[in-house]
Write a protein that binds this DNA or RNA. Sequence first.
DNA 1: GTTAGCCTTGATGTCGACTTCAAAGTCAAA
DNA 2: TTTGACTTTGAAGTCGACATCAAGGCTAAC
Lengths: 156, 156
Amino acid sequence: MNGYGYDQKSGSRRMSIGELARETGVTTETLRYYEHEGLLPRPQRSASGYREYDRNAIWQVLFILRTKELGFSLEEISDLLKLSDNAKCATERANRRLAEIEKQIAHLESIRARLARLVATCPDGCDPSECCPILSAIQPEMAKQQEINDLKGTRK
Amino acid sequence: MNGYGYDQKSGSRRMSIGELARETGVTTETLRYYEHEGLLPRPQRSASGYREYDRNAIWQVLFILRTKELGFSLEEISDLLKLSDNAKCATERANRRLAEIEKQIAHLESIRARLARLVATCPDGCDPSECCPILSAIQPEMAKQQEINDLKGTRK
DNA sequence: GTTAGCCTTGATGTCGACTTCAAAGTCAAA
DNA sequence: TTTGACTTTGAAGTCGACATCAAGGCTAAC
């Protein structure tokens, strides 16, 4: 048996910070951090000062985690929670986030294309005795410049 | 006229750190930082201790910037430069990076899909008087639990 | 000769999202 | 009763990639 009482309202047992951490898969430090940052409400305290959470806290934490997964920062999540208090619509934020994500995807796709092209220039185990085609493809002018300099050097 | 001499080898004028910064679009602090981290070779010094770069330095900096654009960290770039010294092939690194990028893209795409679905549930200016469908969609169980609790609360 | 603008160094600050730490108090089981 | 696991707090540390600062020296142009 643990010393944590029952939540009057929901009728379910209250939890320690450790139990909440186990239920949600985060560490106790993270929970305290979220509380400190205003993402989680300050819970009840036992006589000895321990935090006592009700079952609702689980969903509050999971909300944070899910929203984080969607790429929102903790500050944005905090904003969303404040909006939620006012029962205002979060569409605008979500749309902004969506636009950001699409930009990120486009950026990564252009990187992917460039990288894939680079990799294609270099057959599997390329000759270690010559300059790697990938490296020289990243810096074509540098390679050329080096060649020119080398030529000048040998001629002098 | 400036006090920076000519590079014997390339025959081109040497540059101060400020000039190199202007040519490459980074700050002097960044250049010193790259040098400190071993990404740029330590340049010649003037009698008074000023750094004196030759034109090659420009391509070295641009190589770092281009590779950074491809999503490599400074540490990875440092590795690549070491490999380049040994004239070994960088294919493996590039392939690893490519795999990472594809994972990131896939992740972002799943986020995009989820977000788009959420946004679709909420017509433009949704009614501020009721709970935002987006927020409740992120936390369906929480909303349900809240309802249950509210009902219990009013019944008691 | 003066001034504005360059350069030097090492140290410290920044951001976000935690993690780690120290030192002490509390709880449940054997 | 003692052990060991748990909890408390605020402060400091971590990561990467720089940015900023302080306090001074150097150089070019007027």
